[in-house]
Design a protein around this nucleic acid. Structure first.
Lengths: 145, 145
DNA sequence: CTGTATCCTTAGGGATACTG
DNA sequence: CAGTATCCCTAAGGATACAG
């Protein structure tokens, strides 16, 4: 896109588009937020087959934008851990709101109406609960084996 | 992206990504929601220079996804009007939530804190107000002439 | 005004092999 | 495990020109 060279002109939507306006990035954030993935390999083996170079590129960009933090796994020094930063976590309510919107309009998604209602009514509250362990309630991933 | 041929596998985020996970689409929605644009030409002359074929393509896709409705201007039969459908309007709260998030993290956007706070606290209420005419309050577009 | 139609170029992405 | 490095190819996008 032509205008990427310049700044966002103070437009918040453009700023957001720059960070999350990419399908792969979107899905990676989903995996980090709702699917408890935290390692390169786990993200790589997500339901959609992302290729190694793309994943590495997107993770680099997300880190650059301060959306996530990369750290070494204390248990296994050769393992890295990708975790959402505060900035990334702060996007969870928005994602939940989007979640609810999709559920309302996509015939194919069938999640508990109570959960969708909560995501719509109080995304902040639900986001907080999810961060505290309610994690898999919104996981739509099919078990892979 | 490879998996587009298939369905979204019941994942709402993937469904959303399919519809709005594109920068141009994102910006078009912004213009429709917050900048009161409703004609092809108005959208074309937005702050970012979108080319004619891309705009036509995205409008077609948005219409296909039921995000907007195209109608003939009763005042000028040669003019078309693009308006958000209910589905499109229902996405406004989410966009406002994103709006607030960006404002919090992008140093370059300076909007009234009260407005940002409201977008964060009660996106549904603010969306309703905007639909009733408070429209330009969130317009970050520089006047073009 | 609201698009189509082209042409051309580049960036994004799939596949795969390889490395510390 | 966590990437990097290529290679190749297609689709997306820009720049016009043109048309109903």
């Amino acid at each position: 896109m032509k205008f990427e060279e310049s700044k966002w002109n103070g437009c918040p939507i453009r700023y957001a588009a720059e960070i999350i306006g990419d399908k792969w990035t979107f899905l990676i954030l989903r995996d980090l937020m709702f699917r408890n993935k935290s390692s390169y390999t786990a993200l790589l083996h997500s339901s959609e087959k992302i290729s190694t170079n793309i994943l590495a590129d997107r993770l680099r960009k997300l880190e650059k934008h301060g959306m996530l933090e990369k750290s070494v796994d204390p248990d296994n020094k050769k393992q890295f851990i990708y975790a959402l930063s505060k900035k990334g976590l702060d996007l969870m309510p928005t994602m939940l709101s989007l979640f609810a919107w999709s559920c309302e309009y996509d015939d194919e998604t069938h999640l508990p109406a109570s959960l969708v209602g909560e995501a719509k009514r109080d995304p902040w509250g639900l986001a907080k609960q999810l961060r505290q362990g309610k994690a898999l309630a919104l996981n739509t991933e099919k078990s892979s084996r």
